[in-house]
Design a binder for these strands. Structure first.
Lengths: 341, 341
DNA sequence: TTGTATGCGTTATCAT
DNA sequence: ATGATAACGCATACAA
């Protein structure tokens, strides 16, 4: 399907030098005379030569290829993580290989290819990463850096927001704003991030004498809408809600907004998670806990740096980055709903 | 940084067969005896062997690597395109190499690497692709498939929504809903998609006796907010607005929502573009023109298929996929704004 | 400074 | 069915 690229040998022939000289020229080796260099560059230009990186990978055992495993990009938070990660990796001269994974068995079809292309590391930004899936990645014998999957495992470098602490802060804040009947609208039951956020929230609430309602569903708009419909149908609906992520929060707002049957308490306080751009949109003004993804990415890249520098490293790392509460109207004055304030 | 992977030669030695037999076994070649096969598999298991794809690429001149060049993932439309593309490419046994490009000169640093890894094709989902940038990609001597960049160029396969037609339909629809003072809130002046959408809208409006106000800014939330602030400050503000994309529309809504000084006509009709999930959110209920990204991706992949199958192809292709108007409250009953309806 | 020779881990073409 | 052998395009140790 493709006309061959010129090789360094072709360039060497045309320039009248050896292939080694061409190689040296293109890697910026100093031991090349100016004359040779210019002859080489000229020939390369003429032949439209593009150095092939693949042999180098085989020889140096280093591809500068990093796999990014994602799933569920409908969440703008992960879209942002993906974009920032790609930019930062490019800055450190790495290329991103993208792998989308829906379910755990989807991993089976992707993993062989990742290893086949000899990626140097795998970064998982999966919202759901089970232990089995983590094992599959670790068995690549390649470092695995995982976002928001607090898992103790050899070969796994974990970077998370301090979800439990964030949950506590959400509880404190909602209570301080007058919330008395607390609820948590969460993600999948066994998701590690969900577990930690819920636990922190529930523990802090109980410590202050409140028993929160706890609910689970998808980490999505639809999941939020469903949970709101259930929770607010109660005779004693909550007046302060902490949502496992912003999409859940916005989905919940949608359910309240649309249903004339549901009449939530006024004011209704709400806090979300991730601080996606949409939280700041005028109709919402949602308070949210910002995950400092830039700091998280910093950590991930410094691990990667260490790996490249062959620094001795612990065989597993668990880093926690504190979340930051961003308060907006939804938790201060209460959520605005049409025809109700 | 990495312990070497076992090679097929290692496996061959342990299994007591030749390297060729190992190779054949792993490529599913039929000409391998069951005994040999099982010996090989056993040894491979033992050594945790992972076939290296790189030599194959060098020999076959085919990497099954497709570069996806993106920029501006804050637009959920492109996030969705990226996700779907990745999934579909994986289904056809290709791997995505991601490249983020902000500006045209960012392309300079990325292009050499894409060619270095010997990608088979480049898909550009850049919202902004200038002619110079397009040339750089084409000079890779690799097929370039471009989304929403209607450009006539050899080596460039263009797949766009029929933006001009969509612009016409937006004008017709807004007028039929009673709009009289039309406005277009657009993206960057020279962006091809912006040009086509605006032209279609303006031509159709004029054909029906209306002279629209035309405005340009970024294809973003902030761009929409700025344009709205300008446009609605007029003594005769528009009563029907077509926005170059949904983010612009939502940004415009934000400006209206927040400013007490702006009092737009009632009803105010609005139509956006892309039909991102947010348009359907309760506070907005924005009508929008759906880009059928699945159909667009279908086309892109079939081009790729043809390339892999070595089918004779025209040296440039321009495909248009019709947009589909999704009508919601914002263009039927008019936009809902707080305290004004 | 430059060139020669060898090797990286496969695939593909021959023989056998 | 199996094995030997020659590429693929580059990096590198070594010789000159």
């Amino acid at each position: 399907m493709r006309k061959h690229y010129a090789s360094s040998t072709d360039v060497a022939r045309l320039a009248g030098v050896s292939q080694s000289t061409v190689s040296r020229t293109f890697r910026g080796d100093t031991r090349v005379s100016p004359e040779a260099r210019s002859k080489v560059m000229e020939a390369a230009q003429e032949l439209d030569y593009r150095p092939n990186l693949l042999p180098r990978i085989m020889l140096t055992q280093q591809s500068r290829l990093v796999a990014l495993v994602i799933g569920g990009m409908h969440n703008p938070f992960y879209a942002r993580v993906l974009e920032r990660f790609t930019i930062r990796l490019q800055e450190m001269k790495c290329q991103v290989m993208l792998a989308h994974v829906d379910s755990d068995d989807a991993l089976d079809s992707v993993v062989p290819r990742l290893s086949g292309y000899r990626v140097d590391a795998v970064v998982s930004a999966l919202s759901v990463l089970t232990e089995a899936a983590a094992n599959q990645l670790i068995e690549l014998r390649v470092p695995v850096i995982s976002f928001n999957t607090h898992m103790r495992k050899k070969g796994l470098y974990t970077i998370s927001c301090d979800n439990q602490q964030a949950g506590r802060e959400a509880a404190r804040h909602l209570i301080s704003q007058g919330g008395r009947r607390l609820a948590y609208l969460g993600g999948p039951e066994h998701n590690p991030a969900n577990i930690d956020r819920r636990r922190g929230f529930a523990e802090e609430a109980r410590a202050r004498g409140f028993e929160p309602v706890l609910s689970n569903d998808e980490f999505s708009f639809a999941g939020g809408a469903r949970q709101a419909a259930r929770i607010f149908a109660s005779a004693t609906p909550p007046d302060a809600v902490f949502c496992g992520n912003d999409l859940i929060a916005i989905g919940a707002v949608d359910a309240l907004w649309r249903s004339s049957e549901i009449t939530p308490p006024q004011p209704l306080r709400m806090v979300g998670f991730d601080d996606i751009p949409q939280t700041a949109w005028a109709p919402y003004e949602l308070s949210s806990i910002l995950q400092d993804e830039e700091a998280m990415i910093d950590r991930a890249l410094s691990i990667l740096d260490d790996l490249y520098a062959d620094v001795d490293m612990p065989d597993r790392v668990e880093l926690l980055v504190p979340g930051k509460m961003i308060t907006r109207r939804s938790s201060l004055n209460g959520l605005q709903l049409p025809g109700r304030n």
